[in-house]
Design a protein around this nucleic acid. Sequence first.
DNA 1: AGATAAGCGAGACGGTACGTCCAGTCTTTAC
DNA 2: GTAAAGACTGGACGTACCGTCTCGCTTATCT
Lengths: 214, 214, 214, 214
Amino acid sequence: MTDHGVHEATPASPEALKGQEPVRRGRGRTRDSATTAAILDAAMELLVEEDLRKFTIERLASRAGVSKATIYRWWPSRGAVALDAFLNAVDPHVPFPKTTDFLTALRFQASALVRVFRETPAGHVVRALLAEAQSDPDLADAFRTRWVEARRDSGRAVFRRAQESGQIRSDLDLETAIDLVYGPIYYRLLATHQPLTDKFVDDVTAYALRGLAP
Amino acid sequence: MTDHGVHEATPASPEALKGQEPVRRGRGRTRDSATTAAILDAAMELLVEEDLRKFTIERLASRAGVSKATIYRWWPSRGAVALDAFLNAVDPHVPFPKTTDFLTALRFQASALVRVFRETPAGHVVRALLAEAQSDPDLADAFRTRWVEARRDSGRAVFRRAQESGQIRSDLDLETAIDLVYGPIYYRLLATHQPLTDKFVDDVTAYALRGLAP
Amino acid sequence: MTDHGVHEATPASPEALKGQEPVRRGRGRTRDSATTAAILDAAMELLVEEDLRKFTIERLASRAGVSKATIYRWWPSRGAVALDAFLNAVDPHVPFPKTTDFLTALRFQASALVRVFRETPAGHVVRALLAEAQSDPDLADAFRTRWVEARRDSGRAVFRRAQESGQIRSDLDLETAIDLVYGPIYYRLLATHQPLTDKFVDDVTAYALRGLAP
Amino acid sequence: MTDHGVHEATPASPEALKGQEPVRRGRGRTRDSATTAAILDAAMELLVEEDLRKFTIERLASRAGVSKATIYRWWPSRGAVALDAFLNAVDPHVPFPKTTDFLTALRFQASALVRVFRETPAGHVVRALLAEAQSDPDLADAFRTRWVEARRDSGRAVFRRAQESGQIRSDLDLETAIDLVYGPIYYRLLATHQPLTDKFVDDVTAYALRGLAP
DNA sequence: AGATAAGCGAGACGGTACGTCCAGTCTTTAC
DNA sequence: GTAAAGACTGGACGTACCGTCTCGCTTATCT
């Protein structure tokens, strides 16, 4: 992995996915992948260690055993590193459920998300990233593209298939439909007025199914 | 307004709760209400001026023509002032709709919220407050109690009335039901993957009605 | 001592010399004289410890147990602190020699300077200050006014008296005359092509006397 | 010019001393004289452009279109390049005056120096080099040997000849005598308390002549 | 009418982090 | 083997805020 999304391209560039090498970029010393890894690992560590206010470039550099300049060479901001570290650790793509039943498929995905938020540090990190994004437009863009939309893509496919098999109505605004399921989950994640229980996922998906039925 | 919620033991609190005026709290010069107002006004100004990163105590003090110490005397943090300034400018309570029809009432409230987010600086400020709350537990509590729950109370009443009149099912988890409507709205506010249109409100409420129908 | 020359006024302001207090400058916490002293002392220490490249604000701050901001609040640059520290430790004024004999008086002053350069850290510091001044016009001004001219004043008086008593010619350019004595000394201090011996002082002053004789 | 003095063991040195061209020194690509020239030219440009603080290896490399490593391969420090660039542009040797009259000869040399300081960028550069030399012993050595002493050699010859022809006393310390003329000039160059005028040169040389007369 | 307190503006202070720049060194490829 | 490109550590720069702390003045109320 040689490239850090927020900067210029997607992290998993096509070449990388095919297992090919980063390709030569002319002369000069090549980027040290151990350094990059150290930074991303240290970032994930810091992100997990509760107090988000302690996620500073200075701390990150010393934790990774790297100079600040090296971090700034590759990432434009705190949030950018955080996002890369997060996506480096958590794959934004949800595996397709095997079933063709809409409710089951929807629950599969919603549960997967909620479980990740609840049982891994990801919940913490997503909260931090969304918070940071509120005052950093570049990060907002990157986060939307690389996390929000990546997950929504998976959801979109499920909804579309259900539409094709007639399990939900056909005059549907797909985007709104997805928000109906993901919206409540993120709302609870951020506002913390109620916990993210399995029951909650079941209820939300059940209501959605009924609301979207043909 | 003299009570600044986030601050647990604000001198004026007890009296304020009883609706009485600040009254005397022993000897000494009394709190200058003009100063308080200047701070809250300046805070709201700064909050509105786009770049949230510029909302610092230092700037706030100089903008309000006040010393930093005076701010720290009454509020424990940036977020606390911001919240007070916000609630000082925007009433968290939604007027009860005149109608008894559930869908109309629900739309009334959802539209009111979306319109405030879209057409006033409140959207901006709520985003900032929610962001700040992710790393400030005290602010999170205060924001939840004084904004989130205050609005949800209005919503809860509407849902309850609809339940009583049989417009929606009776075995309902009210909290989840409210999330079904507010969740998607906050999700769009924060993730900005799609705009907060009137059509969106109509769709969300319509889907919810069908999902919650008896 | 409240004022640090390079900034706005002379360090030993008239009031200070008369033993009067720094005078109140309106409201606000007063400047901590212990802090100022700690900075100047630490600066002098660093200045003396050979390697001038180690005289950095960062080191100075940590050595003085003071924050960088405090240093920057009172001095505009490295050189400014250095100059104040130097003048705080070394009085630029040369005591008047008791004699009225020109050669004796001249030697008295020249020897005093050379001895200070040779036997105290002052030589080191003056070299550093002159070096720094070559790329810092503000420092150059301050150094010229507060060190160079202060010393030259003493010299000027001696030359003037000798002129009045007819020991040296009367159609003399005083400035050039002083350069004739001080020039060679500073030249050796900086170029180090030859050592600053007592013999050298004797020779220079003797040649000058003969060159300036009526 | 391939020998860069400050650098003791410059690869090209031996050949250069024999006056031959760089020639082949074993295998591999030969040193690019265009590169060397580009560096020295760029260095002189930067040196002249007023702000000495901008004379950094980084800037020099990019200005010369050369990599930093190439500069470090041939010169040990900032000052070393600066000195080479300076001597590459200004010949340290003063042509012998045709006259045998001491005062005329002395004035010839002193005027030449002052004119170079006043009318070319050399004054600026000498100031920078002397400043840098105060904290770089290697540069100090090189500057003394290659500039200071080279000029003094010319002066020494003039003094010696005057001594032989009886124009000045014979029990003279030559080094002190030279300082008597050059000292005041460098002093004014560096302390800038008075300008370097022609009148000044005339006065200094005249006083010296009288001081040194038999 | 004092005395006693608090409120308040001004601003000094030790800290921490910012984002930038440069010094030197090292690594890779091109010539 | 020289050179260009450029990655990398390390350290200082000067700035901005943080939260705390005097300081001296003002404004109340309590004795």
